[in-house]
Design a protein around this nucleic acid. Structure first.
Lengths: 194, 194, 194, 194
DNA sequence: GATGAATGAGCCTTCATTCAT
DNA sequence: AATGAATGAAGGCTCATTCAT
């Protein structure tokens, strides 16, 4: 079948919408069930509990996201071009699914529960995508080597993250994210180019 | 007496500690009261409710922080030197009060409640401190003018914020924040210097 | 099944008993739940809140009561006979369900909440049952017309109400309410008979 | 001094106003203190607790009321004239102090606490004032003897009480209580006159 | 698998009462 | 006597979770 676990998907998508609107703690499981069009109890057939729903949501979507970046990173482009494309893809994804972006941005930052106790391998993997690009650039002489990859990847991710957050939280979304992506590429690449 | 509103301070500091450890939603008002060494009801003599406690906490501390930045910004230094000092002070504050940093980082980002519905003027003011430095630098020819102040200030803040977060969330705090501050200054200033 | 909304009934009956014994404000929702044999939360599946429970209780029971009076009033008896029967039925109902009577007598008179803010249509309807009898009697010449129906219906209701209250509050219920009903009929009808 | 226990009086009068407006349970001790213009704690210098405040209020005012009736009853008038004057005085008092009337009418009926557990001697005394008039009337042949004094006094009191309540609860107080008093006198005396 | 009525633990909040000043 | 800040017990209500159907 094409549609595996249809209900599970419905619930995850309902949760994304509801968590984005109300926040994880303020939203109720009943809210999610209603949005997903299933009964409250059904959620517990697919997820251990409310926390597990958030984590599963994150992992499922994060895997999808990592895949969308993977071809980009497997390409033969020079490091600066890869970084440019990374940045554009990042903002494209944000624009495509604002609710998901909001859940990632706002809700996952939230409680120690999810960024401290819950060891977030997918997030680390994501950061390492950036690290890999920088690594490549430093290897082939495209990028400067005077700053640590660790610091640089956090600067890049932090920049994208904050720009995305402001765009999400602002009510006016006419503001073009593509233009922002262009500017951001210039600034960040300039800061690192050999 | 010298110490006015001693209880209010005790409560705010208790709240910072408890919210940092457990998260705003997971922490109970009773937890805060216990940490502050007051009765549960006492909290309601000083704060309207639990939400108000978080917001008051934020506003009180944010004002303190803004003041600590103000002399720096009133100084006669060139823009790049100001930015360098801004970055160092930022990390210094983070190191000084990790709990407060964590509350700001994690809890305030949290739910729409606090960054969407609650119009956060202090946060905007803080971002504008950075904007002012950039503005000065563009005016006197220190900084490039090809990128918008808006984008640039978010990149700077986002970078600092993310670096701070990783430092907070990592258990090993031997890692020197001063070194990070140095690296970050170099990168960010390089990206903008004329 | 025959019994629909079994739980709602259980709760209302529990509430009648508990409110009669402890009073509305002194009784807790947990008391009612325990008496009804349901969980605390179950009450909130059927009633919006504690106030709503009291109002719903009143409306449900008042409708039942109004129905028990309706055949009497639809009958072809002369007005004085109707009034006599009304009085007897009133005391009969009091005797049948002392707890309910007590809730009506004591708790509903209570706070502005329930007789001032809550516009009590059922109670007005009940008073008008008496008004209708008097009206009929004045029309067919059975009753005097020198006094207003409004005053007369309040006198009749107030008399019954006070007699009922004293009976309820007295511990000795050997005292026959039927005898009281007889006496009361004589007095009240005498006061109005043409 | 003329004004003995000035504070105590202030508190009682504040309580009457506040209890009338909000109801005994809904009103807080702090509300009463504010209305009386004293500190919360001051109330506990004069009253054991909140319940005691209500009971003391009742007893103090009830004594005043009983005194106002006493000369009437000591007079040499025939029983029917006494009853007529009783009724007029009753409504006059209601009109004079609506708040007090409301507290007596609505709040004191309230919980078992005050009409069941609290043995209300003053109220019994008040009812007996009516009983005494009837007794006199039956002795001197003015009133019929076919009905018990007990029933009759409750009918009279219940009638006055209900008429007063409706007047209090209705917003329109243009309605003349004197006219009501007149009508009521006619009806009640007619029902009992030999 | 799916439902949703029922559960009951737990938390925010109120407020009568106390007591140091 | 008077104050009012502080207390903390207690209760209304919510909501994640379960389970009989």
């Amino acid at each position: 079948m094409m549609v595996k676990n249809n209900k599970k998907e419905l619930i995850i998508n309902g949760a994304i919408k509801v968590f984005a609107q109300k926040g994880f703690y303020t939203a109720t499981v009943a809210d999610v069930a209603k949005e997903a069009g299933v009964a409250d109890g059904t959620i517990y057939l697919y997820f251990k509990n409310k926390d597990d729903l958030l984590i599963s949501l994150f992992e499922t979507k994060m895997e999808e996201i990592l895949q969308r970046f993977s071809s980009l990173l497997a390409s033969k482009h020079p490091a600066d071009e890869k970084l440019r494309r990374f940045i554009h893809l990042y903002f494209k994804l944000i624009e495509e699914d604002r609710n998901l972006a909001e859940v990632f941005q706002v809700e996952l930052r939230q409680s120690s529960k999810f960024l401290k106790d819950y060891h977030n391998q997918n997030f680390i993997d994501f950061l390492n995508l950036i690290g890999d690009i920088i690594h490549q650039g430093q290897d082939d002489g495209t990028f400067k080597t005077d700053i640590s990859i660790h610091t640089m990847k956090l600067i890049i991710f932090g920049s994208l993250d904050e720009l995305a957050r402001q765009w999400i939280l602002s009510d006016d979304h006419h503001e073009n994210l593509k233009k922002t992506a262009g500017e951001t590429s210039i600034i960040l690449i300039r800061s690192i180019l050999a």
